[in-house]
C-alpha cells in the first residue's frame, strides 16, 4: 500500500510541474484561442537562467542571504526575466499576427519557439547542463511508511502555493473575473468595459514567470537540463491542459496533477517504457467520451 502512496506523491511532484506549465498554455488559450508553442521554451529559458544564477552567483548570494536566499533569488530573477521575455515575445511575434487569425499565429509561435530554443543553445551551448548537487539538503523524511525528500516537499509546497494564489486571483478577484469573462466571450467582455489589452499582458507575464519557476524546480529535481527539454514538457503540459479542459484554469491544474499521477502509476504498474503511450491513450479516451476535457464546459455550437 505504501508503495502506491509513494508513487502517487512522486506523480504529484511531476504533475505539479505539468500543472504549472499547463497554466501558461491554458491562460493564453483562454484569452486568445492561441496555442503558445513557445511556452515550453519559456520554461527552458527560466531553467537556464536559474542555473546561471545558482552556479555563478551562488557563492556571493549564499554569503549574503544564505542558501534559501540564493534559491529565492534564482526563482525571482528567472521569474521576472521571463515575465519580460514573455511580454517581448507577445509584442514581437504574436501581436502583429492577431488580425490574421489563429493559424498564422501557430506558425509564428513555432517560429518563436525555434528562435528561443536556438538562442538558448547559442548562449549556453548544446550540451546538457547540470544543476549544482544537493542545493536543498538531501534529507529524507518519513511519514509512517512513506519516505519523502525535503526537496520534494519544498516543490509540492511551492507549487501548491503558486497554484492557490493563481486560483485566488482568477476566481475571487475583480481582475480575475475580467480574465474569465474575456475567456468566455471576448467581444462582450470588451463591451462591458474590460481592458482586453491588460488581460493579454497579464497572461503573457504570469504564464512565462510560472514556467520559469517550474524550470528551476525541474532543474533541482532532475539536476540535468538541456535546451530541447521545453518540447517534451511542453507537449505533456499542453496535453494536461486539454485533459483538464483547455482555457479553464482549475482544469489545467487538475489535468497536470492527474497526468503526473497517471504517468507514475503507469510506469510503476504497467511498464516504464510504455508510460507515455499510456498517458496519450488515456487522453484520447477522455476526449472521445468527454470532448471538451474533464472540467471544460459544453458550449452549444453557434450557427
Amino acid at each position: 500500500m505504501h508503495v502506491i502512496l509513494e508513487q502517487i506523491i512522486n506523480g504529484l511532484t511531476i504533475g505539479s510541474f505539468y500543472a504549472l506549465i499547463a497554466l501558461g498554455y491554458s491562460m493564453v488559450y483562454g484569452v486568445l484561442k492561441l496555442i503558445n508553442f513557445a511556452h515550453g521554451d519559456f520554461f527552458t529559458l527560466g531553467s537556464y537562467l536559474g542555473y546561471t544564477v545558482l552556479v555563478f552567483g551562488a557563492a556571493l548570494l549564499t554569503a549574503h542571504f544564505g542558501l534559501w536566499g540564493a534559491i529565492m533569488a534564482a526563482l525571482v530573477f528567472a521569474g521576472v526575466s521571463l515575465a519580460i521575455v514573455g511580454l517581448i515575445v507577445e509584442r514581437v511575434a504574436y501581436r502583429p499576427v492577431y488580425p490574421a487569425g489563429r493559424l498564422p499565429a501557430v506558425v509564428s509561435a513555432l517560429g518563436a519557439s525555434i528562435f528561443l530554443q536556438n538562442a538558448i543553445m547559442v548562449l549556453w551551448g548544446p550540451r546538457f547542463q547540470a544543476y549544482p548537487p544537493a542545493l536543498i539538503p538531501n534529507v529524507r523524511i518519513q511519514f509512517g511508511n512513506i519516505h519523502l525528500t525535503l526537496l520534494q516537499i519544498m516543490i509540492l509546497l511551492l507549487s501548491f502555493v503558486l497554484m492557490g494564489t493563481l486560483y485566488y486571483i482568477v476566481q475571487k478577484t475583480t481582475f480575475g473575473a475580467a480574465i474569465r469573462a474575456t475567456a468566455h466571450d471576448r467581444k462582450t467582455a470588451s463591451l462591458m468595459g474590460i481592458n482586453i489589452n491588460k488581460v493579454i499582458l497579464f497572461v503573457f507575464t504570469l504564464g512565462p514567470a510560472l514556467g520559469a519557476v517550474t524550470g528551476i524546480m525541474v532543474g533541482m529535481y532532475y539536476r540535468q537540463i538541456s535546451f530541447t527539454m521545453g518540447w517534451n514538457y511542453g507537449i505533456k503540459a499542453f496535453t494536461a491542459s486539454v485533459l483538464g479542459g483547455i482555457g479553464n484554469i482549475p482544469g489545467a491544474m487538475l489535468g497536470g496533477l492527474i497526468l503526473g499521477v497517471l504517468e507514475m502509476l503507469g510506469a510503476a504498474y504497467i511498464s516504464a517504457a510504455w508510460k507515455d503511450v499510456f498517458v496519450f491513450i488515456i487522453l484520447i479516451l477522455v476526449l472521445i467520451f468527454r470532448p471538451t476535457g474533464i472540467l471544460g464546459e459544453k458550449r452549444a455550437e453557434k450557427v
Partner: peptide, 12 residues
C-alpha cells in the same frame, strides 16, 4: 536556426 525562426515570424 535563429534566422529560420525569425523568418517564420516575419512571413506570418
Amino acid at each position: 536556426m535563429l534566422i529560420f525562426g525569425s523568418a517564420m515570424m516575419l512571413m506570418m
